[in-house]
């Protein structure tokens, strides 16, 4: 009896599996996805080479916010080059509605003047800012960005572990989504366009 039941179950599961194989065609997730549990984000004021920069200065624009540091030899250049290439896919009208803020979490080594030259190398529309360690820690926490100094014997004494997503902030200053590290330029541009609408 129990054998029959077992066989029945096996037959059912086999059918289900075959059926799934044939008919279940899940949509593959895109690499750029609005996250379910997005961090709050919100206002901040930090220092740029041209004086204080606040998120609210960019009301009406879509703002991409990235946390990094200039001593970062690989991850930040890859992210920033991807973002810059994405910006270059936009038409001038769209580009005028987008701002990019690079927040250095390494204020000890990254002065606003250094940051300016660094970010403009990638794209002239990027702004580099930093602040006090306390201010940066508070902002990063609200944005869900993580960073931690690691005393690795390299790169001038320490490296900074950091989250590598780019935050997409809406025209009203509200957190919208995250762009994954190393997202290709067309995905960056697609996400910007989606959020500009």
């Amino acid at each position: 009896m129990s054998e029959k039941i077992l066989l029945g179950i096996v037959a059912f599961l086999t059918t289900l599996l075959i059926g799934l194989g044939f008919f279940w065609n899940p949509e593959l997730p895109e690499r750029v996805l609005p996250q379910a549990g997005m961090a709050a984000g919100g206002e901040f004021t930090l220092e740029s080479a041209k004086g204080p920069v606040s998120l609210k200065d960019y009301r009406g624009k879509l703002v991409l916010v990235y946390f990094g540091y200039t001593y970062c030899p690989d991850i930040c250049p890859t992210s920033l080059a991807g973002t810059a290439a994405g910006l270059n896919l936009l038409d001038p009208d769209e580009l005028a509605q987008v701002a990019v803020i690079f927040v250095s979490v390494d204020p000890e080594r990254d002065t606003p003047a250094r940051l300016k030259e660094y970010v403009e190398f990638f794209h002239p529309s990027m702004v580099g800012v930093t602040g006090t360690p306390e201010n940066l820690a508070e902002i990063a926490k609200r944005y869900g960005a993580f960073y931690a100094r690691q005393p690795v014997e390299a790169a001038g004494g320490y490296v900074v572990d950091h989250s590598s997503e780019t935050y997409v902030v809406g025209r009203e200053g509200q957190m919208l989504s995250k762009i994954a590290h190393a997202a290709p330029p067309d995905e960056v541009a697609a996400e910007i366009r989606r959020r500009l609408k």
Partner: peptide, 19 residues
């Protein structure tokens, strides 16, 4: 001045560079 062999560990989106 220095040349090192490094890798990156992607720990839940946090990039950790290590020799």
């Amino acid at each position: 001045k220095l040349t090192e062999l490094h890798t990156h560990i992607n720990d839940n989106g946090v990039m950790k560079m290590r020799p």
